[in-house]
Amino acid sequence: MLESVPTATGRTIPLEAHGARAEIGTVAAVLRSLTVAGVAVTEPVSADAPPPLGCGIVLVPWANRVRDARWTLDGVEQRLDITEPARANAIHGLLRNTEYTVLDRSEEAVTLGALIPPQHGWPFLLDTRVRYELRPDGLTVTHGVVNHGDRRAPWAVGAHPYLRVGDTPIEDLVLTAHAGTWFEADERKNPVGEHPVDGTGNDLRAGVRVGDLDLDTAFGDVVPREGVAARLTAPDGATVDLIQDDRWGHLQVFTPRNFPRPDGVGLAVAIEPMSAPPDALNSGRGLHWLSPGESTERTWGIRYTPAR
């Protein structure tokens, strides 16, 4: 049942079925934890503080950044609120601090919804939802949206899970990502070019040890193999997969060394599904333009496979 006392991550919704367990917070529809057969496959988020470094939150109606918090719609400049003051950008959409409403709930699944009303730099009315559903090997996440406004509206979506494989040290995991391009960024983390990964340190297709990576990098041309966009592999062969279909097309890999845990800060790895690249409101790439009354969905997931 829903906790009666709200916390920094909203009210906690526990899910448990098929040997898997998750906790969802209603603020930012945050994925607070996920375990499969008792094995932690995401970094846990405390209920008592905002998710560190965006851990587990939903990113909508855009993922990543909007340069200078400005974009142009039908020849008219739109000015969003600056939500990344250090870099003067708008970051990770408009629902990062919003309380979602529980629309549907069972032991194994929950659907949360939140309205994105017209506001600074955003003259649209979108109704969004996200559904978390446990599976025996992990979790399926479905994002949906309906345009309730009277004009076409752009939409993109992402999520910010930090993945792990149980207690295996993060630096010893091998990351494989099936991406063909990477986005060069300036000092404010805004894209300035897209390049093939071939022959570069950003080619993760054959697998690279996470301890050897220092990334806050967007990738494009993501073509999943049998649904797997990216994989973490432990030395014993256990894996955690990021599942995407071809409609996503992009992901972000972030390997901060300052991720906070109860025993101190350390290395973590975020592997973030994105339906559009950074600064998509300006480039137009990957945006889904919704006509009035139109709806659409995107689905991704996390899958754990134990060592054989």
Rank of each mutant, 00 (worst) to 15 (best):
E77T: 14
L73V: 14
A40G: 11
L34N: 03
E99V: 08
L134G: 02
H120P: 09
T83A: 05
V58W: 05
A47G: 08
A20Y: 01
N89L: 15
N97E: 13
E107V: 15
L31H: 01
E84P: 06
T101C: 14
P117Y: 15
W71Q: 11
G25M: 02
I82S: 10
V76P: 05
D127W: 09
G56E: 00
V66G: 01
S106K: 14
D104W: 02
L73I: 08
L139S: 04
L126G: 01
V58A: 15
V30Q: 01
E99W: 15
G54Q: 03
A114H: 04
V66E: 00
D74L: 11
L34S: 06
H120S: 08
T98W: 08
V27S: 03
A86H: 12
G56F: 01
D74V: 06
Q119Y: 13
R65Y: 06
G19Y: 05
E23M: 04
N64F: 05
A69G: 09
S46D: 10
T26K: 06
V27Q: 01
A28C: 13
P85M: 09
D68E: 09
V60Y: 11
G54S: 09
D137F: 03
I91K: 04
Y132T: 12
E43N: 06
S46G: 07
I57E: 00
E23G: 07
Q78V: 08
D137M: 04
E77G: 11
D48A: 12
G138E: 02
A114M: 04
D127P: 09
E133T: 07
S46H: 10
W71P: 02
G25F: 01
T35L: 07
W122E: 01
P52D: 05
T128C: 13
T83R: 15
I57T: 13
L34C: 12
E108H: 10
L139H: 09
E43A: 07
T83N: 03
L80H: 07
T128M: 15
P50H: 15
V58C: 10
L126S: 02
W62R: 11
T111R: 08
A88L: 12
